[in-house]
Amino acid sequence: METIIREGSPKTPYVRLDGGNGVIEIKGRSIPENSVEFYKPLIEWLDKYGNSPLELTSVNVQLEYFNTSSSKCILDIFKKLELTHKKGNKVEINWYYEEDDEDMFEAGEDYQSIINIPFKMIEMVE
């Protein structure tokens, strides 16, 4: 599997999709007007990865901000991972949030309530 790396921009997050190590990272802010355009290739990558995933896939999500346009795309990512998980592959999701950021903590809980993979909520202390 090829590795996809997207550097962060004022409106889009840093993304690393590393098939060789089974690591998926999304960091920074995701506030584009058209989030589908940004996330489509990433979701396609996950589709392919799901066909032959590693024994363990580690997912690290560390978002500072995301808009509602991104929220559905992020859900789509988790849904792809849920499929991989359902097939019996191990998937761990680490959801990072800053210590006083209740909104980001709750956003993690939102996804956890929809997606059938255990989330590890990780508080980052400054």
Binding site: N34, S35, V36, S69, S71, K72, C73, L75, D110, S113, I114
Partner: peptide, 11 residues
């Protein structure tokens, strides 16, 4: 959560 989960909204 209900709306997000249903995906019943456009991008």
């Amino acid at each position: 959560r209900e709306i997000l989960g249903k995906g019943g909204f456009s991008p």
